[in-house]
Simulated assay, not measured.
Amino acid sequence: MSEPSSTENSVKELTEEAKWAADPKEQKESIEQLTSYGQQAIPALEEVRTITAQDDIRNEADAAIKDIQKKEGVAGEAEKEEKKRTRAKRRQKTSTSSSRKSARTMKSGKNKTSKSITTTKKPAVARKASRRGTKAKNNARRTSSASHKDSREGRRGSSK
């Protein structure tokens, strides 16, 4: 096995210092020093970011990672994933909002192309006629059920 190079050792040392130093100033200084190692320091900075509990140190590590990626011209995997998630959310929002709009227009009977749709009411005479038809049907049902009751009563009476 080959021994780690001096840069790997110094990256590891700076990483440990950035993670576990008692003074936040020391942690920030080690993060700054890590940025000078470029692409090699990104995994170490990500490790610092995930382990530390202090927001300012986490933000410092994030800023250092972004700075290295800008300098190197490499977009980080986390950044790509974040972009994908936001695009997916936007697509999801637009699809649900458009389906809601179409449901609303279908409910209200309005269409986007026509500005207003007028509905025609039946004249009062026609409404009354349709009611009469319904009343006639109901009356027919009542009379048929009444005659059915009479026939049942007749049977009961004969058995007495």
Rank of each mutant, 00 (worst) to 15 (best):
Lys121Asn: 06
Ser114Asn: 13
Ser114Asp: 08
Asn111Cys: 12
Glu46Met: 15
Arg132Met: 15
Thr118Leu: 05
Lys84Phe: 15
Arg100Glu: 14
Ala124Trp: 00
Arg132Glu: 12
Gln40Val: 15
Arg85His: 07
Asp56Tyr: 05
Ser98Val: 01
Arg58His: 11
Ala78Thr: 12
Thr120Lys: 08
Arg87Trp: 13
Ser102Gln: 10
Lys80Thr: 09
Lys115Arg: 12
Val74Arg: 08
Ile42Leu: 09
Gln54Asp: 13
Asp55Leu: 09
Lys71Asn: 08
Glu77Pro: 05
Met106Cys: 02
Gln92Cys: 02
Asp56Asn: 13
Lys70Tyr: 06
Ala124Lys: 14
Thr105Pro: 00
Ile51Cys: 02
Ala126Phe: 11
Ala64Pro: 03
Thr35Trp: 00
Ala61Met: 04
Thr118Lys: 06
Ser36Tyr: 09
Arg58Pro: 02
Ser102Val: 04
Ala41Gly: 03
Asn111Thr: 15
Thr50Asn: 14
Gly73Ile: 12
Arg127Gly: 02
Gly73Tyr: 03
Arg85Pro: 02
Arg131Asn: 13
Met106Ser: 11
Arg90Tyr: 09
Lys80Ile: 15
Arg131Thr: 10
Ile42Thr: 10
Ala75Met: 13
Lys122Arg: 07
Ser108Gln: 08
Val74Thr: 12
Lys101Ser: 07
Ser98Phe: 01
Glu81Gly: 05
Lys110Thr: 14
Asp55Cys: 00
Lys112Ile: 11
Ser130Asn: 11
Ser130Thr: 05
Glu79Cys: 00
Gln39Cys: 03
Arg58Asn: 05
Arg127His: 02
Lys71Gln: 10
Ile57Leu: 08
Ala41His: 02
Ile117Met: 05
Arg87Pro: 00
Ala75Val: 13
Arg87His: 10
Ser99Thr: 04
Ala63Phe: 02
Thr120Phe: 08
Ala44Phe: 10
Glu79Ile: 00
Arg131Tyr: 07
Arg49Asp: 06
Ala63Asn: 04
Ser99Ile: 02
Lys121Gly: 02
Ala63Pro: 00
Asp55Asn: 11
Glu77Phe: 12
Gly76Trp: 01
Gly133Met: 03
Thr134Arg: 13
Gln54Tyr: 04
Arg49Gln: 15
Gly76Leu: 03
Glu81Tyr: 14
Ala63Leu: 13
Ala53Met: 03
Asn59Phe: 03
Ile57Tyr: 08
Ala75Asp: 03
Asp67Thr: 08
Ser98Pro: 00
Asp56Gly: 04
Ser99Gly: 01
Gln69Glu: 15
Lys135Met: 10
Arg91Ala: 13
Glu72Asn: 10
Ser36Met: 05
Gln54Met: 15
Lys137Tyr: 10
Ser95Val: 03
Gly76Met: 04
Met106Ile: 06
Ile51Ala: 07
Ile68His: 03
